[in-house]
């Protein structure tokens, strides 16, 4: 009874709006009351949540395993850095250029899914992440190779400098909130339903008049667009970029955020991001094993609860271990009742 009441409480819309308002108010007040480290962690969460939400559109809604998201992030960051340091382009223009340029790269990478199965696209994304690193490390004249590009000026929209830590915090906050609203509206729209239809049953979707290849390419472009924006923000926020940030390990971390939060849920992406940004900060001694910890989390989640914390039912298994235990408990209850009768 108590559990049902609790569930009722959380499923009410008014409760949800109330909780969201508290969260919003807390994040607005946070920079004035906390220290620099906390502010930095929350800012990192904002940037990473852009990445994980983009990857959620690709992986959780369209069902494509994208293991090169960090490389797209890197494309956005390098476009911004090169435009700002080499050509003195203002940040607002570089920001848009990063988004659109990365989306174009995403378009080129996803074109093979016109003819090939979805699984093949994950091979291409892994290959892309390695090719990206090879190009960045060897094209000395443009990307300055392994030493990276320093001295990127701070975030600046239309001549207004956001150089203080609090101002940067609020810019990142605003971009994250706007992106969240845009992405969740995309996933609730007709196109979002088409994406989920393609994920669940490609043939069925096709017979309902949806073009799977188009949907896949478009969702890939949307996801990589937000990765590009995140890249621009990251480059201007940190002020320096190097190839070692945008490795395959970062891509798997981004994907793990989506899995933990729950595939097929945009708020889930944010929840997963919070966990994977805060975890390495709190257990620094385990930082060496971060990859392994992420792997164990992936394994256990897939075996026991593939839909993650708040993911879509489409990922839940019918005969997973969790369901089996549940069935056994139900069977025991039925047997008990029969005994009493």
């Amino acid at each position: 009874m108590k559990k049902a009441a609790l569930k009722d409480f959380f499923s009410k819309k008014s409760t949800r709006i109330f909780l969201l308002a508290i969260l919003f108010a807390g994040l607005t007040v946070a920079p004035f009351v906390t220290n620099t480290l906390t502010k930095r962690i929350i800012s990192t969460i904002f940037i990473y949540s852009l990445l994980s939400m983009g990857n959620m559109v690709i992986g959780g809604f369209t069902g494509m395993l994208n293991l090169g998201h960090a490389a797209f992030w890197g494309v956005g960051a390098y476009i911004t850095a090169i435009l700002m340091t080499g050509y003195n382009v203002p940040f607002s223009a570089a920001f848009l250029a990063a988004g659109i340029g990365t989306a174009l790269v995403g378009l080129v990478v996803s074109i093979p899914c016109l003819r090939l199965s979805t699984d093949f696209l994950s091979l291409i994304t892994i290959a892309f992440s390695y090719i990206f690193l090879a190009v960045v490390r060897n094209w000395m004249s443009v990307t300055k190779g392994p030493q990276g590009i320093p001295g990127i000026s701070c975030i600046n929209f239309f001549g207004v400098d956001f150089s203080s830590a609090n101002a940067v915090y609020f810019v990142l906050f605003a971009v994250a909130v706007v992106s969240f609203i845009v992405i969740s509206n995309i996933t609730k729209s007709k196109f979002g339903l088409a994406m989920q239809a393609v994920r669940d049953d490609e043939l069925g979707a096709r017979s309902a008049g949806i073009k799977p290849a188009q949907v896949k390419i478009l969702s890939f472009v949307i996801g990589t667009f937000f990765a590009g924006l995140a890249g621009a923000l990251y480059a201007a926020y940190i002020g320096y970029i190097g190839p070692n940030t945008f490795t395959f390990d970062t891509s798997t971390t981004i994907f793990q955020m989506c899995i933990l939060g729950g595939l097929g849920s945009i708020p889930g992406a944010v929840v997963g991001t919070v966990f994977f940004v805060v975890m390495p900060e709190t257990i620094r001694t385990l930082a060496v094993y971060r990859v392994g910890v992420g792997g164990v989390i992936m394994l256990l989640l897939m075996l026991f609860r593939p839909q993650g914390i708040m993911g879509s039912r489409a990922f839940a298994t019918k005969d997973g271990i969790q369901e089996r235990i549940k069935n056994k408990l139900i069977a025991r209850k039925v047997a008990n009742v029969q005994k009493h009768v």
């Binding site: 395993l65 293991l67 595939l263 094993y289 989390i297 075996l303 298994t317």
Partner: peptide
């Protein structure tokens, strides 16, 4: 890693295998 999720959604065994790969890599490291 594979047998418990053999009939699950297409992505699920791929992800659990990736998890196993990361665990193996960490042990080796």
């Amino acid at each position: 890693v594979y047998r418990p999720v053999r009939d699950a959604f297409r992505l699920v065994p791929m992800i659990s295998a990736l998890g196993a790969a990361l665990v193996l890599r960490t042990i080796a490291q």
